[in-house]
Write a protein that binds this DNA or RNA. Structure first.
Lengths: 328, 328
DNA sequence: TTGAAAGCGCTAACAA
DNA sequence: TTGTTAGCGCTTTCAA
């Protein structure tokens, strides 16, 4: 970049001091309209572009930028959430930069020198490593609970959410449940909090009907395969709860292929609350994380953290709520 | 933020000069491993965090950040494209910040002082106003062609893409086409380049079967309503081309509701190339913009623009290509 | 291998 | 209303 035009140049061109240029450029008081116009005109003419680094270095209130980290923006869950967070960020005057994973720790450590806070879905289990990678930059982890000092977290209360969901499903005639879980291929299996909530909510027979798909968490294909195998192993299943809306969409496809009527013969429910769920055939009932108070919680935690309140680390919980649509 | 720990502090703590700290921190040569370790340790201990503004101000090669501007990240088209661009950006070491519209000109003018380049979907027709809002920051407009000096653009060659699409559809038995177009509510209607390409490609009778939905461009509901009205007005239609994949998904829903078999009775095709198209029932055939050379073109143009090559403004064209799936 | 000096471009505080 | 003087925190010469 040939960023050569500085306030110095403008000052010279307009015959004023640098300070006056600053005042004109930033709409500050204590300057006559006349000089302001003259300075602005000179800036325009010379093609002046403020240097944001210099400006922020000198300025007392620095620009805040927060990084949002996710697995992949190809997943509509993350992108819808991004949209929500983006609104919250721009309301508060924060810039938001987004990144998807390479190596988590390396990414965090890189971001730590580029932004003022990091928030996102990060699976690295070693909390101490996270704290040290963040080097003092506030780090807010979503969808998990942390214990280490130095980290904030916002988790979902699936236990109570599943209570509501299952009760509602029973009221709609559900008797025999099945769960489609997902696990990133090639990793050690750890039961998800979704699964734990499921098992402790449904009847014992249903609790055993769990299919774990080895696939990227958010894959339609996984839902499709999982549905087939679930129905094969547990033919009496009348209600399928999928780990995510995308998997539920896969289940919908599988049901259609098998000629299984939804919701007549089998009800299908996803988790996430994608707005896209309204566009499937039939429209998807979902345990919604999006559109819940999640966004507000994130913004809240960030506000505290950016404010520099070193006092304590937030541990929040957010309760998903059911969106009833056609599929259940 | 209490960003008080500076290299000065570390220098003092480690008993070295500031330069030495810089060398240690940035992995530069001309420093003994021993001092480097000592300095790093001091930094760790004091909780040092580099100030990115100071660093970039002093550094000769500044960090590049590019802003990506779209209507809304709730639209999967934009989010999938974001994912693509994000990959391209991180490969090149650029930061990317994303923004969705408020007032376009105001947004651009704000971004102009915060980033090094702006790329995106911007509908403001007044090119001079865009140039002046960008204040010298490279501005790359997608999905349109510009004439003004000072703007880059990357447009889609729908004319030739529609040629391929329609030929392929005919080979699959299509005879009577219909187009579902969309127009933001409350704006003056201007035929899209998609429509123009459509009309000049299909037979005269089909060219007249165009339904313009007054709705947000990318709405499933619009596609649903549009499909109904198209079939009502032109019952002999056997192939529906929708302005976007989301609208095509709406059309799919409407067809299902009406008991119209897809692709047996009516073929349905979208535009965009969403990966989600693979998840619908039936999976969606689409004229793909995503996954085409678009991303590469954008990166290319940005590279030139960021490089500071003032020489000329790029005018690129990108040809969408058909992804054949079940719906046609 | 290390350090001293001189800025990067801008804004804050103070004077004039 | 305007200008002067000091930095913001870091990196880049250039010397030692």
């Amino acid at each position: 970049m040939q960023q050569r035009v500085t306030i110095e140049d403008i000052a010279r061109a307009a015959g004023v001091s640098r300070q006056t240029v600053t005042r004109a450029m930033n709409g500050m008081p204590r300057i006559s309209e006349e000089t302001r116009a003259r300075v602005l005109e000179a800036g325009e003419r010379l093609g002046y572009r403020p240097n944001r680094f210099a400006s922020n270095l000198a300025r007392s209130s620095k620009a805040k930028t927060v990084a949002f980290v996710v697995d992949s923006f190809r997943n509509p869950y993350y992108s819808e959430l991004t949209a929500d967070l983006l609104d919250a960020a721009s309301e508060r005057g924060w810039q938001m930069t987004i990144s998807s994973h390479e190596n988590e720790l390396k990414l965090i450590s890189r971001l730590a020198s580029e932004v003022d806070a990091i928030v996102g879905y990060i699976s690295e289990p070693d909390e101490a490593a996270l704290v040290s990678a963040a080097r003092g930059v506030p780090l807010v982890l979503i969808d998990r609970t942390v214990t280490a000092d130095g980290l904030h977290s916002i988790d979902f209360d699936f236990a109570s959410a599943f209570g509501d969901l299952v009760a509602g499903l029973r009221a709609r005639g559900a008797r025999r449940f099945g769960l489609l879980e997902s696990q990133p291929a090639g990793t050690a299996y750890v039961p998800s909090s979704r699964r734990e909530a499921y098992e402790s909510t449904v009847d014992p027979a249903s609790a055993k009907a769990v299919v774990v798909c080895e696939a990227p968490v958010q894959s339609v294909a996984a839902g499709e395969l999982g549905f087939d195998s679930l129905i094969e192993r547990h033919p009496d299943t009348d209600t399928v709860i999928a780990f995510s809306d995308l998997m539920a969409m896969g289940a919908l496809r599988a049901a259609h292929r098998q000629g299984i009527e939804v919701p007549g013969r089998v009800k299908i429910v996803g988790i996430d609350g994608l707005s896209l769920g309204a566009a499937t055939v039939p429209a998807l009932t979902s345990l919604a994380i999006l559109g819940s108070e999640l966004t507000g919680q994130v913004a809240d935690v960030l506000e505290k953290a950016l404010g520099g309140a070193d006092g304590g680390f937030e541990r929040r919980r957010s309760v998903p709520s059911v969106i009833w649509r056609e599929s259940a």
